[in-house]
Design a protein around this nucleic acid. Structure first.
Lengths: 188, 188
DNA sequence: GTCTATAGCAGGATAGAC
DNA sequence: GTCTATCCTGCTATAGAC
């Protein structure tokens, strides 16, 4: 792995653990094993490094999401798989955790987040629409709204789990969502 | 208002706008109009000031929540009122926005958050249970899970709205939740 | 209880030798 | 491309006069 790659890897870890503002260049250098000057040799600024790291994270998360939502299973089962995906609730979402930082104002840093959430909503809505087409979901349901709701449950699950320092909060939020999903499923 | 109260008021505003780590003592002094030395005269540390401010915020939010959930209306209508409460989606939740900060490790700063979310879940679950007792909600539903889910939708709505810089995201997440709620409501 | 002054440190970034 | 050294700034906090 090149020095540049080591830097990006370290940045990805630190962004997850501490967020953007608390990720100091010093910490990146220590974790990556790179020497002092190298960060500003490879990147113009801390923001550029973080943007590179977040682009990779966003791409990884989109791939994971797609793998689950495009599996060869009935659509609502894929939606349940999305909800039941294992999550490290106390760590928080790698992208969602950054939404409260000042830095969101900078376009290069917000765009990986917006790319992920846009894609996630679109894909989830598409699967819900498949469910409607095969008749397992009532046609009256607005799939875009429901997709937003389900993604919000996950993101909110992280918030609750961290606020209460209890990963069980995520599980409860997800269980509740699954119950609601059962209620709108149409038996064939 | 005393200097101390001015300091706390300024801290409440800044915690909402910027979060804890980005709230500098300097900014608190400027906003409150207090002189340099006065912060550390009235408070032992920035953390103590923030803890005082967050305790007030938590108490205010609990009062608001209670006012909605204890209204004299049918229980599920109160739950809908909770979901439909006006929110400044792009600003974020005054407490939920702090869940990703390092500072959560400090007990005095986490406890206002944990107090609010614990109370919110308890109160919401109680109202859902009333709905079960009067027969408007299926008895099979786990009210604690559902309460966590609904609070998560709101918190996740903030995350989505900020990530996409679009307050409509909150509205969609809420609308989806209302649709799901309709589906489990039992007509009398 | 409030003021001015400043300590001590870490932040992001740069210079210039090698 | 990597190293050591260092700049400037803003942070949290303290000292001590008034």
């Amino acid at each position: 792995m090149s020095t540049r790659e080591h830097l990006v890897t370290a940045a990805k870890e630190l962004l997850w653990e501490r967020g953007y503002e608390a990720m100091s260049p010093r910490a990146v250098l220590e974790r990556s094993g790179a020497g002092q000057g190298s960060l500003y040799h490879h990147f113009a600024s801390k923001a550029q490094l973080a943007a590179t790291a977040l682009d990779e994270v966003s791409a990884e998360m989109q791939r994971t999401m797609r793998a689950i939502l495009h599996a060869s299973k009935p659509p609502l089962e894929r939606v349940r798989d999305f909800l039941l995906q294992p999550r490290d609730a106390l760590r928080g979402c790698r992208l969602g955790r950054l939404t409260q930082e000042q830095v969101l104002a900078e376009e290069i840093l917000r765009s990986p987040l917006s790319a992920f959430f846009t894609a996630a909503e679109r894909e989830l809505a598409a699967v819900l629409e498949q469910a409607q087409q095969e008749g397992s979901l009532a046609a009256a349901v607005n799939v875009a709204d429901l997709a937003a709701t389900l993604i919000a449950v996950v993101q909110g699950g992280y918030v609750l789990a961290r606020a209460l320092q209890d990963p069980g909060q995520m599980e409860r939020a997800i269980r509740g969502a699954l119950t609601l999903l059962d209620a709108i499923e149409r038996e064939e």
